[in-house]
Amino acid sequence: MQALIDLLAGFIALLVAAALAQFGADMERPPQPRPEVHRISDCPPPPETASAQARQEDC
């Protein structure tokens, strides 16, 4: 009985996909691009002198 229900569900899904394909609907999603990952480094602890601080301007 379970196999019959599975068969009917598969057949109905096939009919729905065929009907939607007539209108240009596609059941497959286009692959989404993976997001870019930007790796950053942690800033070192603050330096003791002002000259060393001038070298670490980007942190």
Rank of each mutant, 00 (worst) to 15 (best):
E48G: 00
A19S: 14
Q32Y: 00
V16Q: 03
A54S: 08
H38Y: 10
L8H: 13
D26T: 11
P35L: 01
A19K: 07
V16C: 04
D58C: 05
E48R: 13
A21G: 14
E28W: 10
H38S: 05
P30S: 03
R29W: 09
A18W: 03
M1S: 13
L4G: 09
A25W: 14
R34Q: 08
R34M: 06
L14A: 09
P35G: 00
P45E: 03
L8R: 15
I40R: 15
C43E: 07
Q53I: 00
D58T: 00
M27E: 08
G24R: 10
Q32P: 00
A9W: 03
E36C: 06
A19I: 14
A19Y: 03
P45T: 02
Q53R: 15
G24C: 01
C59Y: 09
M1A: 13
E36L: 09
P35C: 02
E48M: 05
Q2S: 12
P33A: 02
V16L: 14
E36W: 01
I40P: 01
M1G: 14
F23G: 12
L14H: 10
E28P: 01
H38P: 05
D26S: 15
I40F: 14
S51A: 09
L14G: 13
P30L: 01
E48P: 04
R55A: 13
Q56G: 00
I5M: 13
A50H: 09
A52I: 01
A50M: 05
L8Y: 03
A25K: 12
P47D: 02
D58H: 13
R29A: 15
A19L: 01
C43T: 07
D58W: 14
S41D: 10
A9V: 15
R55W: 01
E36T: 15
L20K: 06
A52Q: 13
D6N: 15
A21N: 12
D6Q: 13
A50K: 11
A54C: 01
A52N: 10
L4D: 11
A21H: 13
I12S: 06
L8Q: 09
V37N: 07
A9Q: 15
E48W: 02
C59M: 05
R29I: 05
R55M: 11
Q56W: 13
L20W: 09
L14I: 10
A9F: 04
L4M: 11
P45V: 00
C43A: 09
L8M: 04
Q2E: 13
S41E: 12
P45L: 00
A3W: 00
P31L: 06
R39V: 06
L7P: 02
G10V: 05
I5C: 14
D42P: 08
E28L: 07
R55S: 06
D6I: 02
D42S: 12
D42N: 07
P44L: 08
V16S: 03
I12Q: 06
P30D: 04
A18E: 02
E36H: 08
R55I: 00
Q22C: 02
A3R: 10
C59K: 08
P30R: 15
D42H: 11
E36F: 05
P30Y: 00
P45A: 02
I5D: 12
P44K: 03
I40L: 10
L8S: 10
G24Q: 06
P31V: 15
A17I: 15
A21M: 08
Q2F: 08
C59L: 03
E36D: 09
P30W: 02
A21K: 07
P47N: 03
V16A: 11
C59A: 03
R55T: 01
A13K: 14
E57V: 02
C43M: 06
R29E: 11
